[in-house]
Design a protein around this nucleic acid. Structure first.
Lengths: 287, 287
DNA sequence: CGCGGTGATACCCGGCAGGTATGACAGGAC
DNA sequence: GTCCTGTCATACCTGCCGGGTATCACCGCG
């Protein structure tokens, strides 16, 4: 009578994202009429109008917005249930590996810490196998939510940690990375205002969920590209202390006095009950 | 091919909780054979053995345990999606009430704070209607997860806050509530060890998720009952400072020196995006 | 005024969810 | 041993509903 099926949620999320029944149906691999009917049924069953059909296109109502957000969360949760169950399935042999953990890390961040953590955990008795999944910083939350990863190393203030359990591991300051020859590179320290307003060195921009904030600086896709652009004297970047390990000879790092400190956390889904995960977190907390 | 339907999750959770196909089928309002078949299909599709069928009864495998936990979370999420969408449906008229918020509070806790919060929020321009949902302290987390409530006032260390966003509001100490005539009632302060080891006054026990921890003290169902048992000289209780407001003349409250402080938080689902909720949290933070 | 593009409707069909009847098997009472 | 009982699995049937195709109704636009 009143329990949503995941099929219905999948359909609605597709329509709400495309705002177009035809395209949504194509994405779902089905014809348009059954999709229309399914959405109508959904609206009737919920007793709520989800979409506003103007003759030209479709718009979300308030309730539609709510269902889009909540539905995505629910779909993530069911996908996570399936994935984690599948992964737990192989490890039914007692005495064998106590499961496998997937650890999501931002590519090339916290090398040092990651190495120490993996070594220390591998030395624990009865430790599980750890699969390291490199990814962009914005994907980590999604990976944890939909079960593709079990645990992640995240960095505030960039990641939000909302909805997860976490434990802080290390704190570090931030530095400005400048071309070695630049006048500012001679300074002992800088402030954020200093590096934001250099007319010949616009601040590099990183993508957030695939899109770039507006600004004069170049759009950065990866760390190598950033390093090159700095070396060429085209931009400046603000990065955590530990990033000094990948600097070139043509780079100079100057400490920033007023940049927010970067805290590395180990993060996992709040309801997790995995023994292997508990062991990894305990090991991390002892580092 | 690989996406779980909520129907399958509902079925599996029922079987995993009952550990008995017949009873689970009855609970689900269906016959046993289709249920058996559905679970077999689920196992085949996941490629994982979930249940160990010994001729006498059923047991969960490791993967089954995982699916029970994750599946419950997924079912809660879909139920929350349905409920929140339904509730958002009424408020489609712009200019009308900006939605309605359901606030879960432990019955009879934080009277004072609640009153101040409701008054302050009602005075805000454009504030939503607040429905107060009294409940036991253990139900609050479930209510938030499955969408029956949007926001709650919780009290650490009893509630866990894991998986939610929260903001601390007030901190208070705890007191021991004793019969007025008892020798300990004459003391200016007490320690936890003092009240735990009184032979004639065993510490009252509150239920946790419907069950009681073992111990000598009486099992308490509600606050009135507790008050009466204390007045009769049958038990002693440890409660937050603010509970002084409901004490009887026959009660004496003595501050505890080493009890953990009780922090009242306002708590909401981490992914919530409701304007009304944001307003309420802002109001609470200013108190 | 036709034409293209949108979502809705009408109708049909096949698969699968669900029911009933029954089987297979283990354990207990005697 | 032989019942009987309680368990889950199998066999088979049926009706519903999810999905497909064809078509309609409507609007905006050249």
């Amino acid at each position: 009578m009143d329990t949503l099926e995941t099929r219905e949620l999948r359909y609605f999320v597709a329509v709400a994202e495309e705002l177009h029944f035809g395209r949504a149906a194509e994405r779902l691999g089905m014809a348009q009429p059954p999709l229309s009917r399914a959405i109508q049924q959904l609206e009737r069953r919920l007793g709520v109008c989800l979409l506003e059909r103007n003759r030209r296109g479709v718009r979300l109502t308030g309730a539609g917005e709510v269902l889009l957000h909540e539905g995505r969360a629910a779909l993530d949760a069911t996908a996570a249930a399936a994935r984690r169950t599948r992964r737990a399935g192989g490890a039914d042999n007692p005495g064998g590996p106590r499961g496998r953990l997937v650890l999501a890390v931002k590519a090339a961040a916290s090398h040092e810490l990651l190495r120490k953590l993996l070594d220390a955990y591998a030395a624990e008795p009865g430790s599980a196998e750890i699969e390291v999944l490199p990814c962009g910083i914005c994907e980590q939350e999604e990976l944890l939510r939909d079960g593709r990863a079990d645990v992640a190393l995240m960095h505030t203030p960039w990641n939000s940690l909302a909805g997860f359990d976490s434990e802080a591991l290390t704190t570090e300051g931030q530095v400005a990375v400048l071309p070695a020859g630049h006048p500012l590179a001679a300074r002992a320290t800088l402030s954020l205002a200093d590096v934001r307003d250099v007319p010949d060195l616009p601040l590099a921009r990183w993508p957030t969920h695939g899109t770039y904030a507006p600004g004069p600086g170049p759009e950065i896709h990866n760390q190598t590209q950033l390093a090159q652009l700095i070396a060429l004297g085209r931009t400046v970047a603000v990065v955590p202390d530990s990033a000094r390990s990948w600097l070139w000879a043509e780079h100079t790092a100057v400490p920033l006095t007023d940049a927010p400190p970067v805290v590395t956390h180990i993060v996992w889904p709040a309801h997790s009950r995995s023994l292997a995960l508990a062991g990894l977190v305990r090991t991390a907390a002892r580092l």
